[in-house]
């Protein structure tokens, strides 16, 4: 078998929705070479070749694959976590076994836009992050040049839902 095991190494409640969980895992094989193939197979995946990372969703769950690890948010419970792990393992192994018949895709088919990120920011242009506008901050976030932690407003309880949404979008870009 190409990929033998995915070991879950971390599991906690989601920040905004304590009824859901997020977890991380380690892969027993470096799957970097397979990511572009999976990017072709999964039509709505977001591939970031610079990291590299590949993010896709399974219903409400957000799954990000790196070359030797995985991060998942919004899973239901432990059983769900391990079911996702099994599903992902099969996806990787099946894609690998079939890779002679798949045209690898290195592009990012779709990605969140700066506007989308901006919509969830406080939009007050306070400049505390070091950027002159929230829109500028959004653009840098999207390129991975700024850390979300720089926006202190987002980390107040008032902005909790917005923060969670931005984190989802950033996870899709492979930044978490």
């Amino acid at each position: 078998m190409y990929l033998d095991e995915i070991f879950i190494t971390y599991m906690q409640s989601c920040i905004a929705d304590s009824k859901k969980i997020r977890f991380k895992g380690k892969l027993s094989t470096d799957i970097g070479e397979v990511l572009p193939y999976i990017n072709r197979v999964i039509k709505n995946a977001i591939f970031n070749k610079n990291i590299p990372s590949l993010t896709f969703t399974k219903e409400f769950r957000i799954i990000t694959l790196y070359k030797d690890s995985i991060a998942v948010s919004k899973a239901i419970n432990e059983t769900d976590a391990y079911e996702i792990i099994d599903m992902v393992k099969d996806l990787i192994n099946n894609t690998y076994n079939n890779k002679d018949n798949i045209q690898p895709l290195y592009e990012m088919r779709t990605k969140p836009t700066a506007i989308e990120l901006y919509n969830h920011l406080p939009k007050i242009n306070c400049k505390r992050c070091g950027e002159s506008t929230c829109m500028a901050f959004a653009s840098k976030l999207l390129m991975g040049q700024k850390n979300i932690k720089k926006c202190s407003h987002l980390f107040t309880t008032e902005f909790k839902p917005q923060l969670e949404r931005i984190k989802d979008l950033l996870q899709m870009m492979g930044y978490f």
């Binding site: 070991f7 879950i8 971390y10 599991m11 906690q12 969980i21 432990e78 976590a81």
Partner: peptide, 13 residues
């Protein structure tokens, strides 16, 4: 059940 450490995750598994 949501242990924060490896061995608890092994039990989950």
């Amino acid at each position: 059940g949501r242990g924060a450490y490896r061995k608890a995750l092994e039990a989950d598994r």
